[in-house]
Simulated assay, not measured.
Amino acid sequence: MSLVRQLQNHRLTTARIFYHLPDFPAVLQQYIWQDYDLAPDFPHLRRFLDFWQRELEGPLHSVHVMSASLITSSEMKVVHREFVLH
């Protein structure tokens, strides 16, 4: 499934989410989120963050997003011959 999504221009996206603990607001906790998403709008990540703000008690402090395309056009090559070895 991931190869199909990569060919549709999805990128492996990692978000470091820092949030305040509900009982100890001065303490920051970190959560790592990772999925294939479409840059630069990141609709999957936005849906997750909307869910977080709506349903979870720990208020968000900051979100750091990293994204990388795993397949580029230079990595895809057309094969003209195939050799089968025993």
Rank of each mutant, 00 (worst) to 15 (best):
A26K: 14
M1E: 10
P25C: 08
Q8P: 01
E57M: 09
D37H: 02
P59D: 03
E82C: 04
H86G: 10
E55F: 03
V65C: 07
I71M: 09
T13M: 02
Q29V: 01
H10C: 02
M76H: 05
M66Y: 14
F51Y: 13
Q8S: 13
L56R: 15
M1N: 11
A68F: 00
D35R: 14
L85I: 08
Y19M: 13
H86K: 12
P40W: 08
L49W: 07
S74H: 11
P59R: 07
S73Y: 05
L56G: 05
V84K: 10
H10R: 02
S73E: 13
V78I: 08
K77D: 07
F83L: 10
H20Y: 13
S74C: 05
S2L: 04
I17T: 03
S2A: 08
R11S: 15
S67G: 08
S73T: 10
R54S: 11
F83W: 08
Q6R: 12
V84M: 06
Q8Y: 04
S62H: 05
I32F: 05
L7A: 09
I71G: 02
A15K: 03
H86S: 10
D41M: 04
R47S: 13
L56W: 09
I71Q: 09
R47F: 02
L7H: 12
Q29D: 13
Y19I: 00
R54F: 03
V78P: 00
S74V: 04
S67H: 01
R54N: 03
T72R: 10
Y36K: 01
R5G: 00
I32N: 02
D41R: 13
M1I: 05
L7F: 15
I17S: 06
L12Y: 11
L7E: 05
N9Q: 10
E82L: 10
S62W: 01
V78T: 07
Q8E: 15
I17A: 06
V27Y: 05
W52S: 03
D23P: 00
L49F: 04
Y19H: 15
H64F: 05
Y31A: 07
P43Q: 07
L3M: 09
F83Q: 09
S2K: 04
Q53H: 03
D35Y: 08
L21K: 12
P59A: 09
L38I: 12
R16Q: 10
L7K: 06
E55R: 10
F42M: 01
Q30T: 15
Y19R: 08
Q29A: 15
V84R: 11
S2W: 06
W52G: 06
A15Q: 06
L70W: 06
Q34L: 01
I71R: 02
V84L: 14
L38Y: 01
M66K: 10
V84I: 11
H61E: 13
H64Y: 05
H61K: 12
M66L: 04
H61C: 08
E57C: 08
F24V: 04
R47W: 01
V79G: 02
P22Y: 07
A39S: 12
R81M: 10
L3S: 03
F83G: 01
L49S: 04
D41K: 11
P25K: 12
K77R: 14
A39C: 02
A39D: 05
Q34S: 11
L21A: 13
T72Y: 00
